[in-house]
């Protein structure tokens, strides 16, 4: 490393400084300004997302001649039927409930398995096996979500769920939830592993020296010490599950209903947006605009969760650095 530093530094010395001090300051300054504006772009993006969503949502709530649309009825309404019948209903709760149901199933599938795998990777696995497992997880993480959706529709439902019980329809919350769980598994796993590996080795040594088994060390020292990182990992993974679109659009169905029954079909917030943007509704119509209100709700939920996740994560980084 030192040799590299020396070589690079010597390179620089050789070239010398070709321009005058003023030129140099100008050059450095303009590069800095350019990079600064790139950085600002991220802030602009956030602002733009919020403005677009807020503007269109405002348009939805102030639309003329639709007494059924009000902020209050939107957030507490228990019926969502924008495309059906003469009297459309815009209560977002069934969509939120659908999202929650799928996310809960995904969490039940992915969080324990992900944490166990992370413990195995960080505490047990020999270096070679670890490399292989990380590669497998990386591939799983890269599989397009539409593939998981297809898998849920053509494998999980007909070959895993329907043999168990014939109450499962072709579209159901369970298959979508399992597929979303598989999708977030690599995220849970790699973030949890980062958190566990950040726990200093000296704590493990201390616990082993007291006669702990590997289980004691993992469950009573390492996981509690890395807990905030693990929680942050869970939050970030669940955020991904909430925002997941293609899996639920393919496998969960298209009927918005307020239910906790995993065999039933549900519509999530994202699936509704897909339905609208695929062109089932005329643009500028009330149904079309309603998708923006749904998107805004979704954005607020995920933004809030990632924000908490990032705060927790920062706290745990501060603990050990």
């Amino acid at each position: 490393m030192i040799a590299v530093a020396a070589r690079n530094a010597a390179d620089i010395a050789e070239r010398g400084t070709p321009c005058s001090l003023r030129m140099r300051a100008w050059f450095e300054g303009s590069i800095k300004a350019l990079l600064w504006s790139l950085t600002c772009f991220t802030v602009v993006t956030t602002a733009a997302i919020i403005s677009v969503l807020a503007y269109e949502t405002y348009g939805f709530f102030t639309i003329q001649n639709h007494p059924e649309v009000s902020v209050w009825s939107f957030f507490v309404g228990t019926e969502w039927s924008p495309l059906l019948g003469a009297q459309p209903m815009f209560g977002v709760l069934p969509l939120v409930a659908g999202t929650l149901l799928v996310t809960t199933i995904a969490g039940i599938v992915a969080l324990p398995i992900g944490l166990m795998t992370a413990v195995y990777l960080s505490e047990y696995a020999p270096a070679r096996r670890r490399t292989v497992l990380k590669a497998v997880l990386e591939i799983l993480a890269g599989v397009p979500t539409v593939v998981y959706g297809f898998f849920a529709l053509t494998f999980i439902t007909p070959y895993l769920l329907q043999p168990l019980s014939n109450s499962f329809g072709a579209y159901n919350a369970m298959s979508a939830g399992i597929a979303v769980g598989i999708m977030i598994l690599p995220i849970v796993c790699s973030l949890c592993e980062d958190a566990l590996r950040a726990v200093p080795q000296s704590l493990r040594d201390g616990a082993y020296a007291l006669g702990s088994t590997k289980f004691d060390v993992s469950a009573k020292v390492v996981v509690p010490a890395g807990l905030s990182g693990v929680i942050a990992a869970f939050l970030l993974a669940l955020t991904r599950a909430i925002g997941e679109t293609m899996i639920v659009a393919l496998a969960a169905g298209g009927l918005a209903q307020l239910t906790a029954n995993p065999t039933a079909q549900v519509q999530t917030m994202t699936a509704y947006m897909v339905q609208i943007f695929l062109g089932d509704a005329p643009a500028a119509g009330i149904e079309y605009k309603s998708s923006y209100a749904v998107a805004f709700t979704l954005f607020l939920i995920t933004f809030f969760l990632t924000w908490i996740g990032a705060l927790v994560l920062r706290r745990y980084r501060e603990e050990y650095e």
């Binding site: 991220t42 679109t245 947006m273 954005f299 933004f303 990632t306």
Partner: peptide, 16 residues
């Protein structure tokens, strides 16, 4: 803000 952006569902970017 950047970590929040990384958590924004991709479909919301579509809307933007």
């Amino acid at each position: 803000n950047i970590s929040n952006l990384s958590g924004v569902p991709s479909i919301v970017y579509g809307i933007l």
